[in-house]
Computed example of a mutant assay.
Amino acid sequence: MTTASRSVRLATVLRWPLGLALVSWQYMWRTTPLHRSEEQGSIADLPEHWDTDDDPDGRRQGLAAGVGPLLHRVYTVRIGHSTMSPATLMEAVAASLNRVSPEMAVFRKTCGADGPLRHGDEYLVRMPGPWDGPVRVVGRDATSFQLATLRGHLEAGQIKFRAAQDGDELRFEIESWARAGDRLSHLLYNRLRLAKEIQLNMWTHFCVRTAALAGGRPRGGVTIHTRRLDWPPTVASPASADVDRHDPIRQDASSFDFVFTPAIRPVLRLVGVSPVTAGVDLTPTHVLIRFGWWRISLQRSNIRTATVTGPFRPWKALGPRLSLADKGLTLGTNSDRAVCLTLRQPIAGLLPGWLLRHPNLTLTVARPDELAALLTPSIAAPELDAGGVARP
């Protein structure tokens, strides 16, 4: 078992430079015109039921679990001279994803019966570099299918493939809603833009190959429209956050600021923590926490208790701090009062989850009594197993 694991890791490492070289070569010699545009998004860009995703086994990596902004993208290609109907085209695509996927990406089915794509099937998408990503089919009808990312994917979100008749042409579209899956992915995706360009290259090739599968030709190239939405979506932007979040008349009861000790503010700014970049926002299903460079999405059903605690010794409650005693995480901005959340299942926070998970979380927010009351379950919630599924 150990030998096989080392072989797999070695093969993956060796595949990175070759795969990246192939992507770069294809990018430089692309002949299909690309029409790219990008603009600021809004809450309207969120997919339906984004915060109440059906997740029976706790493995789905939804938008709330991601890091950084949401990118809502639509890739569109118009296909001329095809005799296929939209349903026939999507049936052909679903029958063999690798016929339309570029050479750099391979779909390997890991769960489900042999044959065409079906609802509930799972795939591992193998790509150049460390981008391999597990996905699950969460929607399928005659003219479309939809995939959702699973734990361990480079991204957190979902993607939909669809075809429609548009006059005498076929219109094929890929619509994605995605955030970076973790902080490393955020660096590669949104800062260095490396992973972002690889993904764009992959899906534009997918559109071109789908046109070929339809027996037609792309008309006018491929159009890629991107809308970028800062996260969490309940806060409009850093420019307006100072006004909206700190106005006591306009402040939403589901939003909580961190209370800062004045003397510690300059130190916390070194790690990006300020009144604008730190806050807690509640949705019906999640607690969304921003603390400078750190982002945590916590399912409310994972909270065992929420209690008010404090005061603390200053060195124990300022900044992002790990408890050596129990691996608990404190996000501290003052030493007076805080809310301590004990969790049913440990979560990632300070570091990626495969390195460290925390069984409890302490937040030095304003109105701690109110936050604790909102997060205290009104009835005893069920225990969760290791996969996050409720025990009977």
Rank of each mutant, 00 (worst) to 15 (best):
residue 214 A to W: 04
residue 34 L to N: 02
residue 145 F to L: 11
residue 331 L to C: 11
residue 234 T to G: 11
residue 340 C to T: 10
residue 241 A to W: 12
residue 353 G to P: 05
residue 319 G to A: 00
residue 314 P to Q: 00
residue 225 H to G: 06
residue 118 R to A: 12
residue 71 L to V: 14
residue 341 L to I: 08
residue 113 A to Y: 08
residue 187 L to H: 11
residue 56 P to V: 05
residue 22 L to R: 13
residue 84 M to Y: 10
residue 203 W to E: 07
residue 81 H to P: 02
residue 332 G to S: 03
residue 339 V to S: 03
residue 261 T to H: 13
residue 140 R to V: 15
residue 59 R to H: 15
residue 342 T to W: 00
residue 105 A to M: 15
residue 266 P to R: 10
residue 196 K to S: 14
residue 261 T to S: 02
residue 192 L to T: 10
residue 167 G to R: 08
residue 280 V to P: 00
residue 371 L to N: 02
residue 91 E to T: 15
residue 74 V to D: 03
residue 129 G to K: 00
residue 374 L to A: 12
residue 247 D to V: 03
residue 270 L to M: 14
residue 303 I to D: 09
residue 385 D to N: 15
residue 139 G to P: 08
residue 33 P to R: 10
residue 355 L to E: 06
residue 217 R to G: 04
residue 356 L to T: 02
residue 258 F to A: 07
residue 391 R to H: 04
residue 313 R to Q: 11
residue 320 P to L: 03
residue 292 G to L: 06
residue 324 L to R: 13
residue 191 R to G: 03
residue 208 V to H: 06
residue 65 A to H: 14
residue 111 C to I: 13
residue 212 A to Q: 10
residue 365 V to I: 14
residue 349 G to E: 02
residue 289 I to M: 02
residue 358 H to Q: 08
residue 389 V to P: 00
residue 234 T to P: 02
residue 101 S to P: 00
residue 64 A to H: 12
residue 337 R to L: 06
residue 281 D to W: 12
residue 333 T to W: 11
residue 229 L to A: 10
residue 324 L to Q: 12
residue 110 T to M: 11
residue 265 R to S: 11
residue 149 T to N: 09
residue 230 D to F: 04
residue 129 G to V: 07
residue 5 S to W: 12
residue 22 L to H: 11
residue 275 P to H: 06
residue 267 V to Y: 08
residue 298 L to I: 07
residue 350 L to R: 04
residue 55 D to T: 05
residue 333 T to G: 09
residue 92 A to C: 03
residue 336 D to C: 02
residue 81 H to V: 04
residue 326 D to V: 10
residue 14 L to D: 06
residue 54 D to R: 14
residue 119 H to P: 03
residue 153 H to I: 08
residue 86 P to A: 05
residue 178 A to L: 14
